[in-house]
Design a protein around this nucleic acid. Structure first.
Lengths: 215, 215
DNA sequence: TATTATTTGAAACATATGTTTTAAATACAC
DNA sequence: GTGTATTTAAAACATATGTTTCAAATAATA
């Protein structure tokens, strides 16, 4: 019958059952993925009845999508804001901007913050090729790419559009891979610390970009 | 009772039920992951009875681990062989070795070959932090790292051990990220083709490494 | 207060799934 | 060929899971 919950009557703000469910979804899905969390896990964490998921969201799927969409959007805003901030200082250099882009995400992974887990979930969704991610993430990719390309070409005007896109992609590579596999790297390479890794990435990326510009 | 199937009596070589199940596991698990494949999916594809999974492997888990371990080992051998081959030619350059390392995996992803799917599954396992992957993949990481570091330091003797490890990690970044997100990149960046991407990656990585050596 | 709409709770439903059981079928050894 | 061990097959089991039902409780409205 495609029933949807009417706009809640009591306390539309916070700590309603609906909100508690979204919080639980964020905490649990990000940790264990869609299949790893049952509706009863969610309602247990949110301290509500099993039926609440279907009552408020129309199903586990819908709840997941709602939670996922929000998180991706927030990550998107945050990244763009970070680029803008780095470009906004008096004399932005390639290195200073790269550092700004790279540092926070890696720190989030290093310190195992919640936002780090969300990023991992995003990657999992892409790899799992679930229906959920696709449309949401496409917008994310285009938006991020155009914004980053524009910033890079301001910093290094010698680059044409194609070069800038490839460069942005490679910077992304140098950021995402350590983000995902940091634990594994440090486990194998004791004697290298977090700061050394960040410095290396910034240096390596800048060298690659400068070499592209010199071509 | 922890029963294990005795060494098969008939046709120990090929096309036994056991082998068909391993084939089915490789095909299905690599595509849909552990949770995405049911025992009945497997036995359906292998044309055998549901009980066969438990009879021959002692459970879905065990079958998965057996299949996963084999695949990872094969990938490991292949990668090391590739490095050796690239280093074995008369005058190996940094660029030629990098190209050798990068090209085949990316092509596998580009052409959506089976081996590409297996790599993706490996990444998924790491991200999912399932028990399955951990021990298997740790050996993989250490082995690959030491081998690659050795090769790189032969090519670029100015690098110390720490630098070489960071460089190898970054080359891995520049390879794995496109491997995983190639579709997404080409979807957003029409007008860039596969060869251009490979050339760029080799150039970018070499520039980064050369800059490290010059420090 | 009386009436209505919304929310909650417990139980039931339907189904998918990993595993086990049990007996028949098949291959092997003597 | 006979007896034994191995393999196959169908059914049953036990359980986990997403969803639905429906009545009671609660809040809103008049």
């Amino acid at each position: 019958m495609d029933q949807q919950a009417p706009v809640t009557q009591g306390d539309p703000g916070k700590d309603s059952v609906r909100d508690r469910l979204l919080d639980a979804a964020e905490a649990l899905f990000c940790e264990r993925g869609f299949d790893g969390v049952s509706v009863r896990d969610l309602t247990g964490q949110a301290n509500c009845n099993v039926a609440a998921v279907n009552y408020y969201f129309g199903g586990k799927d819908k709840l997941y999508q709602e939670m996922f969409r929000r998180q991706v959007q927030e990550i998107c805003y945050r990244q763009i804001a970070r680029i803008n901030e780095a470009m906004g200082v008096p004399n932005p250099t390639l290195e200073s901007v790269l550092r700004e882009i790279v540092f926070m995400p890696l720190l989030a992974a290093y310190e195992k913050q919640q936002r780090g887990r969300i990023m991992r979930l995003m990657v999992r969704e892409v790899l799992n090729k679930t229906v959920h991610g696709e449309t949401i993430l496409e917008a994310f990719h285009t938006q991020m790419m155009t914004h980053a390309v524009q910033a890079l070409r301001t910093l290094v005007p010698q680059l044409d559009d194609k070069q800038a896109r490839l460069a942005v992609f490679s910077v992304d590579s140098l950021k995402v891979h350590p983000f995902l596999f940091m634990d594994e790297f440090f486990a194998v390479n004791t004697g290298i610390n977090f700061d050394e890794m960040v410095n290396h990435i910034v240096f390596f990326a800048a060298a690659g970009i400068r070499a592209m510009a010199a071509k």
